[in-house]
């Protein structure tokens, strides 16, 4: 673990990304303490410019934009993490089965995966959310459903190659069960690229959620960054700050996640990383 951190630390960008991410998580966790009032409530006069009474100004209904961003961080991170968790779990399960057993099982599972991949993911997510009514649960589910196929393909590839390794054959020979071999022998060796992919998936899930909210398909009870941009887009020429600050929040969060993902990738494949940097 210590060695891992040593390698991670070598990538300066990744350390910055991790720090930023930690800060965002902290803000999200502390949101009710910083701004106990609901972000939907009117806090002052509408259309106040930033750096005045309110650090980032107010929107057209007089809601505090900074409060919205702080509370929105909770929604964004929650949606990103939960949907990625489900997507990775599903992708791992299907990819592992397909790669380990091969043959007909592999064919069936991969055709199933391709079925999901042929539908453009954003359009698919819109359809799902629209059918199941916009709510936080349907948004998380929709994002998970559109983002698991790449995980399944990645895991399947890893399993296909690890399956042939001698240590797996040795496990077969000493009589381990399929489940034990999948979970105990192969999975730990296949996990590093999945972890890297997951960190990047959180970023794209946050973007997807923002895009859905922008289109008005967000959870009506949850203040989210995408909703803030979407709601204020019509007044962007009079009040640039209303859409700009949530946009910057998305940008910073996604960038931090990408940096962390890259750092994880470097730390987990030390040989590749050194080659890339030489």
């Amino acid at each position: 673990m210590r060695e891992f951190w040593q390698r991670y630390r070598r990538n300066k960008g990744a350390v910055v990304g991790l720090a930023v991410l930690a800060f965002i998580v902290l803000i999200a966790a502390a949101a009710p303490l910083v701004y106990p009032a609901s972000p939907w409530e009117m806090a002052g006069a509408p259309f106040q410019r930033p750096f005045g009474e309110f650090p980032l100004g107010t929107d057209m209904l007089g809601r505090n934009i900074l409060s919205g961003i702080v509370h929105g961080a909770r929604v964004s991170l929650m949606v990103g993490i939960v949907s990625t968790f489900f997507a990775v779990t599903l992708g791992l399960a299907l990819g592992a089965l397909a790669g380990y057993f091969g043959g007909v099982i592999d064919d069936a599972l991969m055709r199933f995966t391709e079925f999901f991949q042929t539908i453009p993911s954003f359009v698919f997510a819109i359809v799902l959310v629209a059918i199941f009514r916009p709510s936080i649960a349907s948004i998380v589910a929709a994002i998970a459903v559109v983002s698991w196929p790449p995980v399944a393909r990645l895991v399947r590839g890893e399993f296909l190659s690890l399956r042939r390794r001698e240590f797996v054959q040795a496990a077969v020979v000493v009589g381990e069960t399929h489940l034990r071999i999948i979970l105990g022998q192969i999975l730990p060796n296949a996990l590093s690229p999945v972890i890297v992919m997951a960190s990047l998936m959180i970023a794209s899930a946050i973007l997807l959620e923002s895009a859905l909210s922008f289109l008005g398909l967000g959870d009506p009870n949850m203040m989210s960054w995408g909703y803030m941009i979407g709601a204020s887009r019509s007044v962007i020429r009079q009040a640039w700050w209303m859409s700009t600050f949530p946009g910057v929040a998305i940008l910073i969060t996604v960038l931090a996640l990408n940096l962390v993902g890259e750092g994880l990738s470097d730390a987990m494949n030390p040989r590749l990383a050194r080659k890339g940097r030489a």
Binding site: R165, E166, F167, Q169, A170, V173, G175, P188, N189
Partner: peptide, 23 residues
């Protein structure tokens, strides 16, 4: 086959590939 797995065992060629690096 399991009862027989016990009685027939194998030594593999590549000492680098035949041991799980994470165990």
């Amino acid at each position: 086959l399991r009862p027989y797995r016990k009685r027939v065992q194998m030594i593999f060629q590549d000492p680098y590939a035949s041991l799980n690096p994470r165990h």
